[in-house]
């Protein structure tokens, strides 16, 4: 069992929390997320051109790069996290260019050495994934793919082929940020994906409040929250860990309890 499969094997849905590496005190922020109940950590690798991200995560990328964050720093955050939290799955999320700059094998090797469990690369679709995906799998790292409302039935098998860890269902056709999808559409799409795959499905994009998270947790295996947490990092600086703890606790309670409420 990998850390990811152990987490998703639990009967309760998982809370997946995203922040951008190097935006504020990363170690303190990550600890706050874990202590408040995050089940999986997604650590964003900053990139100058985050094309799929809305204003909140764009700004986080630029703050991090402005503070001088390098790929070596991101890997160090991962290594240190793994030492402090041996059981919590850690996923790197980012864009192709920083990941392939020194070669996909180099990146897979370095990420594996840092204790990373999975990698989400936003802009390498299955059609172009003949180098990074195989390199990651060879090192025991799960390549986590994205499916979207525009991923139709004909395309879905291609997306699933070679995917590991979990499938990230992007609930809105758009960028990260504030728009929200209708829960009916999320439910139908998650059901559609689950017919074709045994992978756990986590749903993200536009999830901000415990209420939204609870609604999604009823129909999916995991809920991803990003922009709302990243905004806290941007707004509160040194006070961010306390504020992250607050929101994450509420989200965790909502996600973990979603199905009990349903059963009751």
């Amino acid at each position: 069992m990998t850390r990811l499969s152990t987490t998703f094997a639990q009967p309760r849905p998982a809370l997946v929390c995203f922040i951008t590496a190097g935006d504020g005190d990363t170690a303190a922020n990550l600890d706050a997320l874990v202590e408040a109940g995050a089940d999986v950590i997604e650590l964003g690798m900053p990139f100058t051109d985050p094309m799929a991200d809305g204003p909140a995560i764009q700004s986080a990328n630029l703050r991090s790069l402005g503070a001088g964050t390098t790929t070596a720093d991101v890997l160090r955050y991962a290594t240190d996290f793994r030492a402090r939290h041996p059981q919590v799955p850690l996923v790197l999320m980012g864009y192709a260019n920083p990941m392939v700059r020194r070669g996909p094998e180099w990146f897979a090797e370095a990420a594996a050495a840092a204790g990373v469990d999975g990698v989400i690369c936003v802009d390498i679709p299955p059609e172009e994934d003949d180098a990074l995906g195989p390199a990651l799998r060879a090192k025991g790292i799960a390549p986590i793919r994205l499916a979207t409302p525009t991923t139709d039935a004909a395309r879905l098998p291609q997306v699933l082929e070679g995917s590991q860890g979990f499938l990230y269902y992007v609930s809105v056709a758009g960028i990260t940020g504030k728009q929200q999808a209708q829960i009916e559409s999320i439910e139908a799409n998650v059901a559609r994906i689950k017919q074709s795959s045994d992978l756990p499905v986590a749903v993200g994009f536009g999830v901000r409040t415990p209420e939204q998270a609870a609604a999604i947790a009823k129909v999916a295996d995991g809920v991803v929250v990003g922009s709302a947490l990243v905004e806290i990092c941007g707004e509160y600086g040194a006070e961010a860990p306390a504020k992250l703890r607050e929101l994450t606790s509420a989200l965790a309670a909502a996600v973990h309890g979603a199905r009990q409420e349903q059963a009751a």
Binding site: I124, P125, L146, T148, R155
Partner: peptide
């Protein structure tokens, strides 16, 4: 070359 885009754009 190629098509290095997010999945949302790929079908498009």
């Amino acid at each position: 070359g190629g098509r290095y885009v997010a999945e949302t754009l790929m079908p498009l």
